[in-house]
Structures are given as structure tokens and as C-alpha cells.
Computed example of a mutant assay.
Amino acid sequence: MDILIIGGNRYFGKRLTSALLGAGHQVTVLNRGSSPAPEGTLSLTADRNDEAALEKALSGRSFDVVVDQVCYTPRQADIARRVFAGRTRRYVMTSTVEVYAYEDSAVPVTEDVLDLGAVAVDLGLPWEDPEFLEAHYGEGKRQAEAVFAAAGAPFAWTSVRVAHVLGGADDFTGRVGHYARRIRAGEPIAVPAVNRPATYVYVEEIAAFLAWAAEAEFTGPVNAHSHGALTTARICAEIEELVGGRTVFQEVEVGEVSPFSFARGYAMDNSRAEALGFRFRDSSEWLRQALSETVGAEVEA
């Protein structure tokens, strides 16, 4: 297949690219040109926020599948709907567990708890403002999905709701490092008084899932995560084993809490993905390895 990846040069995006190349697909990577395209791929350069530039870069090209790694806002989704109409038969959007951030459920949530038809889309919000976008990350993804779910989508589409990702020496988020430094120093780790477990996925596993989704035919949202929800305490216990030191939790009623700490329950249910044919591992099988990869890289740095 001829597959276009939008923004495939970072973290699990580059692993996805490698997986698709290894499967024999022709892969084209579109980005702003700030980093070279991975070896073995074709390269297109455009700012995906600039519709005219995107149209120009794609002139005369069509693809079996588009995998959009960097669709964060309804405005970007709206552009993609127009630009890729007639240029692809299938569109895969990388979404996030954070679309469920308004939920507070005692049981894992399925895809249908979020009614995309009821999501109000506001293209006029300041989505181009980095601070606004960061503060409204889940809302941006939620509205982007709603744009594709609207009646009359010009291509088959799916949104992959990715769990919290762990692993890799190239984890750029700093979340594991936050814990490692505090545990090593015995400094307090701020958590909510009621700290809910959450769903996670190993970086290699989510890349494999996205490659599988690109080759599949299903449509609509799908949750993607490993079995076995994890607590902050479980993650910290593993990091403590790796770096030494002591975990000290400090419960806070208001204010900012540490990453991987959740006052609301919105762990995901991956039954749909498994019914479609993908088999996830249990988080206990990869957690130590994933954390070791990231902590080890930070120690070496």
C-alpha cells in the first residue's frame, strides 16, 4: 500500500514508520521540514495548518491510507477533510485517552461513552495559541474527532484513542524523569487524595497497533492500550527499584499534581480492538523494561 504519515519523525511515529516499511509498504512522510524524513521514505514538506501549502505539496498524489499523527484541533481536522477528499480511501487519526477526561467511571470506559455527535465544534477558538492548545489538549482531540464523525465524511476514518505511553530512550515528555528525580531525592510527589488507576501502553506496542490499524478496514473510534491498569504507586515502586531512593506521596486537594496521577476515573476498555483482531499484552509484561529504557537514558544524559 501507498501510505502517507503526517508527522512521523518522533517517538512512536518513527516506530510506526519503521513497521510499515518493514511490512513492504511505500511510505511518504509529510512534515514542515524541520527534520529529515526517515531513511527509506519519500518526503513532502508543508505546514499542515496552511491549506493552500498542503494542497500544493499533495498535488497529483493520492494514497491508500493517511495516518495523521499530529491532528490536534478541529481546525486541522476540517482542513484534512477537504484536502484528503479524493486523495485517500482511509484516514487514521491518532487520538488520545484524554478525550474521556470529563468521565469519572468506576469501570473502564468504552468508545461509545463519548457521543461525538453531541460534541460542540468551535473552529473560532484560539487553537493556534500553544498555551491554549496545551491547556485544551483533550478538548482539541475530542472536537477533531467530531469533525470526522460528522455526516458525509469523504473517506473511511478511524480515530485511535491512545493510552498513556511509556518506554523508549527517546521519551521526550519528561514524566518518568519527574518521578525518578523526586524518588531518588526523597522529595514529595503531589497526588490527588483519591488517585485513580489509568490505562497505559508500551511505545513499541502502540506503534504496532497503528501499523495494524493502517492495514485494517474498520471505522470509528477505537481504544488502544495494554491490559492491566496501573496506579501511580505501582509505577513509582518500579522506578524506586531502578533508581533507589524513596517514594513520598503528598496528597493535595487543589493545585497541580504529578503526571500519571488522576482524580477522575477514565481508564479505557480495549474490547473493541481485541474483537477486531489485535491482541494486547499485559502491562506487567513490559512495565519494568519500559521504565528502565527511559530512566537509563536520562541517567546517561
Score class of each variant (00 low, 15 high):
Glu241Phe: 05
Ala263Asp: 10
Val254Cys: 06
Pro126Asn: 01
Gly152Thr: 04
Ala118Asp: 03
Ser43Asp: 15
Ala233Trp: 08
Ala224His: 08
Val252Lys: 10
Arg196Cys: 06
Val97Thr: 14
Thr158Ala: 09
Val147Thr: 02
Val97Met: 12
Val121Ser: 00
His225Leu: 11
Arg48Pro: 13
Glu285Gln: 12
Arg181Thr: 11
Val65Pro: 04
Tyr179Phe: 14
Arg87Lys: 14
Ser226Asp: 13
Ala118Tyr: 03
Asp170Gln: 12
Gln143Asn: 04
Ala52Arg: 14
Ala290Ser: 11
Gly245Val: 07
Val29Lys: 11
Glu251Tyr: 03
Cys71Tyr: 02
Ser226Cys: 15
Ala101Asn: 01
Phe209His: 08
Thr158Asn: 06
Thr28Glu: 10
Glu187Asp: 15
Ile79Ser: 11
Pro108Ser: 06
Val109Ile: 02
Ala273Tyr: 01
Arg89Val: 08
Arg182Phe: 08
Ser258Trp: 11
Ala144Pro: 05
Asp2Ala: 10
Phe148Asn: 01
Thr247Ala: 07
Leu291Val: 15
Val165Tyr: 00
Gly220Pro: 13
Ala180Phe: 08
Glu128Phe: 01
Ala216Glu: 11
Phe172Asn: 13
Glu293Ala: 08
Arg184Glu: 12
Gly265Ile: 13
Ser226Ile: 01
Thr88Lys: 06
Phe63Ser: 13
Arg15Ile: 15
Val67Ile: 07
Ala237Asn: 12
Met93Phe: 04
Asp129Glu: 05
Ala229Glu: 12
Gly167Asn: 06
Ala290Gly: 10
Phe209Asp: 08
Glu285Gly: 06
Phe172Trp: 15
Ser292Phe: 10
Val109Ser: 06
Leu54Asp: 04
Leu116Gln: 03
Phe132Tyr: 11
Ala23Tyr: 02
Asn49Ser: 11
Val70Met: 14
Ala301Glu: 15
Glu51Gly: 13
Glu128Tyr: 05
Pro221Cys: 07
Tyr200Met: 09
Pro108Tyr: 00
Ser261Ala: 14
Glu215Asn: 07
Pro197Met: 11
Ala101His: 01
Ala180Val: 09
Gln143Trp: 00
Val67His: 04
Asn223His: 02
Val27Cys: 09
Ala23Leu: 12
Met93Leu: 09
Ser95Leu: 01
Glu285Pro: 14
Ser62Arg: 13
Gln76Asp: 11
Val83Gly: 01
Ala185Leu: 10
Ala263Cys: 08
Leu287Lys: 08
Arg196Met: 13
Glu55Val: 07
Leu42Tyr: 13
Ile183His: 05
Glu98Val: 03
Leu125Tyr: 06
Glu145Trp: 04
Phe63Ile: 06
Thr28Lys: 14
